[in-house]
C-alpha cells in the first residue's frame, strides 16, 4: 500500500503507575484508509487510541513516552495546543456519550465553541451532519428534545455527526458498534467505510469479522506489544507471527 502516512507513532510506551501497557509501539497509519486496531481484551487497544488525541493527559499516574506525529507534527510537543489536536480527531466511544443538551445543541456545541455564531449557519451544519449520519429524517421534528431520549443506536450516530461537525481529519472509534443492535452497527460500519474518502479512520475492534469487513490496514496488539501490522489483505491472507495466526484462528481471543 502506498498511501501517505497520516499518523506516525514512534517508540510509544504508556504506563499506568508501574504497569506498562504499551511497549515501544511504532507504526505508520495510512491517510484516508480504515485502520483496525485488533487484539485480545486488555492488550492496550483503548490506551493506544486515547494517546492519539491526548485523552490520557492529566490522568492519575499515567506516563507517556515516545512520539506521535500527525501530519509530521509531534502532538506531544509541549508547545502544541491540545484543543487543536483534539479538534482534528472525532471520537466515537464504546458507549455513545451524548452531551446533556438537545439534539440540535449536541451538534452545534462544537461549531459554537470554535466560533460559529450565526443561527442560519449552525442550522445548516446541524442538518447537513445529521443527514450525513443518516439521522435527519428520524429526528428532524424533535431537534430540541434532549439527546438522551434517543435510542442507543441513534445516539451513536448523533455522536458521529457531532464529531464531524468540527471538521476533523481523523475519526477515532473505540469499539463504536459494541453497544449497538445489528441494524445500527451496520449503519455505523457502512458510514465508517464511506468516511475514508475524506478522513483517516482508526477503529478499535475485537470483532475479527468486523475488521475483515472494514479494514484496509491492521495493527495487532498483544499484551501491549505491536506484534504485527500491515495491509489487511496481506495480514489476513498470510499472517507471519505465530501469535497473529493464533488470534486469527481464534486460539487466543
Amino acid at each position: 500500500m502506498d498511501a501517505r502516512t497520516h499518523i506516525s507513532i514512534q517508540n510509544l510506551s504508556v504506563s499506568y503507575g508501574r504497569q506498562r501497557v504499551l511497549k515501544d509501539v511504532s507504526v505508520d497509519l495510512p491517510d484516508r484508509k480504515v485502520t483496525a486496531i485488533i487484539g485480545p481484551s486488555g492488550c492496550g487497544k483503548t490506551t493506544l487510541l486515547r494517546t492519539l488525541n491526548r485523552l490520557l493527559d492529566g490522568m492519575d499516574g499515567v506516563k507517556i513516552e515516545g512520539q506521535v506525529l500527525v501530519d509530521g507534527e509531534n502532538i506531544y510537543d509541549p508547545k502544541i495546543e491540545v484543543t487543536r489536536i483534539r479538534q482534528k480527531m472525532g471520537l466515537l466511544s464504546q458507549k455513545p456519550q451524548v452531551l446533556p443538551m438537545s439534539i440540535f445543541d449536541n451538534i452545534a456545541y462544537g461549531p459554537r465553541i470554535h466560533g460559529v455564531r450565526e443561527k442560519a449557519k449552525l442550522r445548516q451544519i446541524v442538518e447537513q451532519q445529521l443527514a450525513a449520519a443518516g439521522l435527519w429524517d428520524e429526528v428532524k421534528n424533535r431537534l430540541h428534545e434532549p439527546a438522551s431520549r434517543l435510542s442507543v443506536g441513534q445516539q451513536q450516530r448523533l455522536c458521529l455527526a457531532r464529531g464531524l461537525a468540527v471538521k476533523p481529519e481523523i475519526i477515532l472509534g473505540d469499539e463504536p458498534t459494541s453497544a449497538l443492535d445489528p441494524q445500527s452497527s451496520r449503519i455505523v460500519e457502512q458510514r465508517l467505510i464511506e468516511l475514508k474518502a475524506d478522513y483517516t479512520v482508526i477503529v478499535v475492534t475485537h470483532i475479527l469479522r468486523q475488521a475483515r469487513r472494514i479494514a484496509d490496514y491492521i495493527a495487532f496488539l498483544y499484551l501491549g506489544e505491536l506484534v504485527e501490522h500491515g495491509p489487511a489483505a496481506e495480514i489476513f491472507a498470510n499472517p507471519r507471527d505465530p501469535r497473529m495466526k493464533a488470534y486469527l484462528t481464534g486460539e487466543i481471543s
Binding site: N53, L55, T83, R84, R86, Q87, M89, G90, L91, S93, K95, Q97, V98, L99, P100, Y109, G110, I113, H114, C159, R162, G163, V166
Partner: peptide, 12 residues
C-alpha cells in the same frame, strides 16, 4: 467519558 466527549471536540 462526558468530559472526554467534550474535550474530543476541541473544547477547553
Amino acid at each position: 467519558s462526558l468530559q472526554d466527549a467534550s474535550a474530543s471536540l476541541g473544547a477547553t
